[in-house]
């Protein structure tokens, strides 16, 4: 900040606002972690004791383990396909000028703005017609649609920092398109590709509406949570929550560390001056 910028309100006001927002964001997460170790069935402030029995219950629950394996399979395959498609689209947009470029970009950024309930409904109708409704393949096909835009954005951001003339220079010196890509573009983009993989994995791992609509009897973890939510108070949700938080928070924080490190300089005018 410019040292002579006088704030309209005292600094303490803005910092308090920041603290309030972080409290709202992290209170539910911390509370889930806390109550996952509670001995009581009903979460309350007067906890009677520490216990890991809910963990034991979740980890021996066959339905839950199957849901976990479904979730990991779907998220893994989704992340692979979405990252490949996202990188391809980002590279195409960076490297080539082609007919309909803007339209492709607009199409690629559209899925995150359509309500998931509507996407789920449309996809269930479509998958029923082509006979793959209720399979994990259907869930993957749908998750790639919502995850690929994130992968594309992350890769495109990184490519924007690569000198466009490097690749053409290599080709002028006789490098074939694929070897220029492999030797110059890929090494430069690798951190972003890794970040894209982790973020798309997290997006798929956490998605419940489309999985619920199109997955049929193949439950993923969030769908299992959703079904439990509609029933009784169940302390195992806190356990599942704690486990998912640790998985997805780790993935996302690693991904963000990579993305923010590489794009830090480009984000604000202040840092470059």
């Amino acid at each position: 900040m410019p040292p002579h910028l006088k704030h309209a309100l005292p600094k303490a006001f803005w910092v308090a606002g920041l603290a309030l927002v972080f409290l709202l964001l992290y209170a539910p997460i911390l509370s889930a972690v806390l109550f996952s170790f509670s001995a009581d069935r009903f979460p309350s402030l007067s906890m009677s004791g520490f216990s890991t029995k809910w963990y034991a219950q979740v980890l021996t629950d066959r339905a839950m383990l199957e849901a976990l394996s479904n979730s990991l399979t779907v998220a893994g395959i989704t992340a692979l396909i979405a990252t490949a498609l996202g990188f391809a689209a980002a590279y195409a947009d960076y490297r080539f000028r082609f007919f309909g470029q803007k339209a492709v970009l607009a199409l690629a950024l559209l899925p995150p703005t359509v309500p998931l309930v509507i996407l789920g409904l449309a996809m269930l109708a479509f998958f029923s017609r082509i006979g793959i409704a209720g399979t994990l393949a259907a869930v993957v096909a749908a998750h790639v649609v919502i995850a690929a835009p994130f992968a594309m954005a992350v890769c495109r951001l990184r490519l924007a920092q690569l000198d466009e003339t490097l690749e053409t220079a290599a080709q002028n010196l006789g490098a074939l398109p694929h070897s220029a890509l492999a030797r110059i573009v890929l090494p430069h983009t690798l951190p972003a590709i890794l970040a894209a993989f982790l973020i798309t994995f997290a997006v798929s791992f956490d998605e419940y509406v489309i999985s619920w609509f199109t997955g049929g009897l193949n439950q993923t973890i969030p769908v299992a949570v959703l079904t439990t939510l509609q029933g009784q108070v169940d302390p195992t949700i806190h356990v599942i929550g704690t486990l998912s938080f640790s998985v997805t928070l780790t993935l996302v924080l690693i991904a963000l560390a990579v993305v923010l490190r590489q794009s830090g300089g480009a984000m604000s005018k202040e840092e470059t001056s």
């Binding site: 927002v21 972080f22 964001l25 992290y26 209170a27 539910p28 997460i29 509370s31 889930a32 109550f35 979460p43 309350s44 973020i199 997290a202 997006v203 956490d206 419940y208 969030p222 949570v225 959703l226 939510l229 949700i237 806190h238 599942i240 929550g241 998912s244 938080f245 997805t248 928070l249 993935l251 996302v252 924080l253 963000l256 560390a257 923010l260």
Partner: peptide, 21 residues
């Protein structure tokens, strides 16, 4: 980074947690 991370984590469980509050 810390502000965006929760966007990708177990929305349903966070909603369930609010119930306690």
């Amino acid at each position: 980074g810390l502000a965006i991370a929760p966007f990708f984590t177990s929305y349903l469980v966070r909603i369930y947690s609010w119930q306690v509050f």
